[in-house]
Design a protein around this nucleic acid. Structure first.
Lengths: 334, 334
DNA sequence: TTGTAAGCGTTATCAA
DNA sequence: TTGATAACGCTTACAA
């Protein structure tokens, strides 16, 4: 089908070694020869076979990304960051979803192993002991983004969820709110669920407010979870004046439910989101939210990874600073 | 480093051929032998080398996706559809961005060629003559999603932009609107720009309304483009009662600008979006929008592609039906 | 049921 | 400056 260096060699009257040298610009060949080879290659429509190259060089120039199966803009931003850096460094990105609740994680990791990706980025999925073991057994440089594990051997880059939640809730308190609900809390999620709940609780109790579990609505990061939470608050006539959400989408769910009942944000109730994803700027009103620098995290994480691949250096875990972006979804009381 | 079939063969006291047979479950070997080989493989932590397999079988079991460099939920949905089907059929997805305005398209295509992807999906990017030629020269089965080309040789799957725009604007007219603006129109975009403008104009003139170019704001699909458009409308005191947007994000931009000025949607002005992306349900008010079945399009397109890869059949282009999703951003006038 | 050996398209070593 | 040739790890006739 497609021409190989053998074909070029024959047509140009040189050896395959020379063709290889020319194509890879390794030098050590006559300029004349070079030109001739290039010309023939072009004429034959030659295209390098990456599989062959990978086989002998033992490097595929690919980076694998494993992420949850949800398709929020959260992941779009991170992916873009990763792809940008990868591209700049000559790496391709191979993407796979981990399935709902990580159901496909095992297969995903095996797949990445068989494809011999040079590096592996795992976004937002919570790895269990089994997963960690498998990951380590791959012997592939890796980094977790926006998640972490119990193991010290797995480097990560993420914001401090506990601290970020604390900051967000503290802000609400500083604005005069005394009864603050929480939406989308997932007590089964040890990474992004529990710490945010703890941060929420701690902020409350540090300020002498009591924690009322009735006003903590469990769920996930989705719009629907937020909506359901607000509907519950309304039904129960919860005496809250503000709600802290685990994601921007959940926050939009809150706002949406309010809109349906004629409750005004922030006049009647204040809302704080989490992520500073694109939708947080697009919402009505624009969301006050905890900023996770997603695109930058994708870039930085990928860069670390590539460094580690090339220099065999170890990646050190890093907690990246969060920031509260004040927009208009929180009302100051008094 | 990692064990090969050779290592297994030696350790199990069989030939590499037998190991290969066992690993690929090709049958024709003693059950005993099979068990022994499996055991040894497991013990050695064997992992198949896809590059080697690809090299001899001349198929990489990968599908390439090329998409614009923006990270909207639009692409997340399509990507998820593609990845789901790919995964089900044993293909991996390799992702690359085409750069702004397709600046990286040439490199992207070459990359996909060198990686010998079995199939190629190009999403939303407008291919010029040069790009088409390159694509065809690759000799790789392909399909365009949500875009098309001048060439009949490049199959696509997309909605009828002209018709969809017509439907949307007609709906506005049916609701009693007589002065309708348009936001995000891109006259340089022959695929998603011009046809939507034409559909808009045609609907207007078919209903005896005149087309006023002052009220067509150019831009792109972004939130900011929508916002700028609305700001211009306000500044110019354009006498419009509704605006048709080229994307949901642009529509949110319109709503956002209105919110800032205290203009109510849909009471003071009606808005129609395009895409039925996730944000359209999350907006306040929920957007009436043209539905492009993104996730399904990803699935269907990928399925067609895989069929074409496996059966060598030709993909026939398909215009998929659009639908107007009525929500709450349009007001009926009388 | 099993083994031998010839590729697949490259890179890379060693001679010439 | 060039060319033979041996890998790389696998699949796949063909033989045994």
């Amino acid at each position: 089908m497609s021409a190989t260096i053998k074909d070029i060699a024959k047509a140009a009257g040189v050896s395959i070694a020379t063709v290889s040298r020319v194509i890879n610009q390794l030098g050590g060949y006559n300029e004349e020869t070079g030109k001739r080879v290039i010309a023939v290659a072009r004429e034959l429509g030659y295209r390098k076979n990456e599989s062959a190259r990978s086989l002998v060089q033992k490097t595929t120039k690919t980076i694998g990304i494993i992420m949850p199966d949800v398709a929020t803009s959260f992941y779009g931003d991170i992916t873009k960051g990763i792809e940008d850096i990868s591209f700049e460094h000559g790496y391709s990105v191979i993407l796979t979803h981990a399935g709902s609740r990580g159901s496909r994680i095992r297969e995903s990791l095996n797949l990445m192993g068989e494809r011999r990706v040079d590096g592996l980025i795992i976004v937002s999925v919570e790895l269990q002991a089994e997963g960690i073991e498998l990951l380590l057994s791959l012997g592939i440089p890796h980094i977790l983004l926006s998640t972490k594990t119990a193991s010290e051997q797995v480097p990560y880059m993420k914001v401090d969820d506990y601290g970020a939640a604390y900051t967000a809730v503290k802000h609400l308190i500083d604005c005069g709110h005394r009864f603050i609900g929480m939406a989308g809390a997932d007590p089964e999620d040890a990474i992004a669920g529990v710490p945010r709940m703890e941060g929420y609780k701690q902020a409350l109790s540090d300020c002498g407010l009591k924690v009322d579990s009735h006003v903590i609505k469990t769920g996930d990061f989705s719009f629907d979870a937020g909506k359901r939470a607000m509907q519950a608050f309304i039904e129960e006539q919860a005496p809250i004046t503000a709600v802290f959400c685990v994601s921007d989408e959940a926050a939009l769910g809150i706002i949406s439910a309010c809109y349906e009942r004629g409750i005004r944000v922030p006049d009647d109730i204040s809302v704080v989101g989490y992520d500073n994803s694109k939708v947080s700027q697009m919402s009505i009103p624009p969301l006050t939210t905890v900023a996770q620098p997603l695109y930058e995290m994708g870039r930085a994480g990928c860069l670390e990874l590539i460094r580690s691949i090339q220099g065999k250096t170890n990646i050190v875990s890093k907690v990246i600073p969060h920031e509260l972006v004040i927009r208009q979804s929180v009302r100051k009381i008094l």
